[in-house]
Computed example of a mutant assay.
Amino acid sequence: MLYLIWILAFNQMLQVVGSNFFDPTSVIQISWKPRAFLAKQFLTDFECNHMIHLAKDKLEESMVADNESGKSVKSEIRTSSGMFLMKGQDEVVSRIEDRIATWTFLPKENGEAMQVLRYQHGQKYEPHFDYFQDKNNQALGGHRIATVLMYLSDVIKGGETVFPSAEEEDNDGGLIKDDSWSDCGKRGLGVKPMKGDALLFFSLHPSAEPDPMSLHTGCPVIEGEKWSATKWIHVASFEKQRPKSSGCVNENDKCEEWAAYGECKKNPAYMVGTPDWPGACRKACKLC
């Protein structure tokens, strides 16, 4: 009896805080062209809510990579708001990164920092590729080979991820498109955002050539709000050179505001820094 009670308590704990364990039987094959797979309940409710909490006060207008220069620029193509978490920012983020590496069989160091995004009514991301068109972005880590898109919230209607160039399966990978799907979501191979689910798709063929069928779009949100977290993974290591501390400065205009809300204690890795990475708001956190 005590053993059964311990097992039930342990399973309940895993549902709350998550673990590095990944269940491959939770994966649904969505498509082979492009290669796309959906993992049901990849994240726990706690993990979804935790990432939203880390991001919600630090959102800025989303950018896209310019095809010529590789620099991040504003564009009507992408109308969400978002921010980047630090790699290994805390135990929860690090555990999710480990789970992604387990699922994809791609090294953890090949991944970029996770980007948390919020899409409000009417906001969308028009059709685009995740592999790079410019050589500047390919210089570090090479092409993006795969993307793991994690849905942090349910969306009442809209916000689907659609592959307009995909060769559709007869049953859409077992996904039923009912009245909760938007017209945009019904126009091709698509996935409806459901809290905790994660979509893995490959932007390159096994030969490492770009796959044009990986073209994808984020449909406009019609009702509700969409939160997601994206992990882009490269063909090689994406570990950027660690910067040396540049003194006691604020590297973001919102540092003082965040410090006033207590973020120096709530989010010390970003605000104050770690032994390997100086914080962005050291002056606001009164380190000098």
Rank of each mutant, 00 (worst) to 15 (best):
Y3W: 00
L4C: 06
L4Q: 09
I5Q: 14
I5Y: 11
W6E: 08
W6I: 11
L8G: 09
A9Q: 10
Q12R: 14
M13C: 07
V17T: 02
G18I: 10
G18H: 06
S19M: 09
F21C: 06
T25V: 10
S26N: 15
V27F: 09
V27C: 13
W32I: 09
K33M: 07
R35F: 10
A39F: 08
A39G: 13
Q41F: 05
T44L: 03
M51S: 11
H53S: 11
D57W: 05
K58S: 08
S62E: 06
D66N: 13
G70A: 02
S75V: 12
E76I: 13
I77S: 13
G82H: 04
F84Y: 15
F84R: 14
L85W: 04
K87N: 05
V93A: 03
S94H: 10
I100R: 03
I100Y: 01
A101Q: 12
W103F: 02
F105R: 12
P107Y: 04
P107W: 02
E109P: 00
E109T: 02
E112T: 03
A113Y: 05
Q115R: 14
V116L: 02
V116I: 03
L117P: 09
R118D: 02
H121K: 14
Q123H: 08
Y125K: 07
P127C: 04
H128T: 09
D130H: 04
Y131L: 04
A139R: 12
G141Y: 10
G141K: 10
H143K: 12
R144A: 05
R144K: 08
I145C: 15
I145W: 10
L152N: 00
D154H: 02
I156V: 15
G158V: 00
T161K: 01
T161L: 01
P164L: 02
E169D: 07
N171S: 12
D172W: 05
G173K: 00
G173P: 00
G173C: 00
G174D: 08
K177P: 03
D179Q: 11
S180V: 05
C184D: 08
L189S: 00
V191R: 04
V191G: 03
P193M: 00
K195A: 00
D197M: 09
L199M: 07
L199F: 06
L200Y: 07
F201T: 01
L204E: 02
S207D: 01
E209R: 13
P210Y: 06
D211G: 10
D211F: 08
M213Y: 10
L215A: 07
L215S: 07
G218S: 14
P220R: 06
I222N: 08
E223N: 14
K231H: 08
I233G: 02
V235A: 13
A236Q: 15
F238V: 14
E239K: 13
Q241A: 14
P243L: 00
C248Q: 00
E257P: 05
A259W: 11
A260P: 08
E263W: 12
K266G: 09
K266F: 13
A269R: 06
Y270I: 08
T274K: 13
P278C: 03
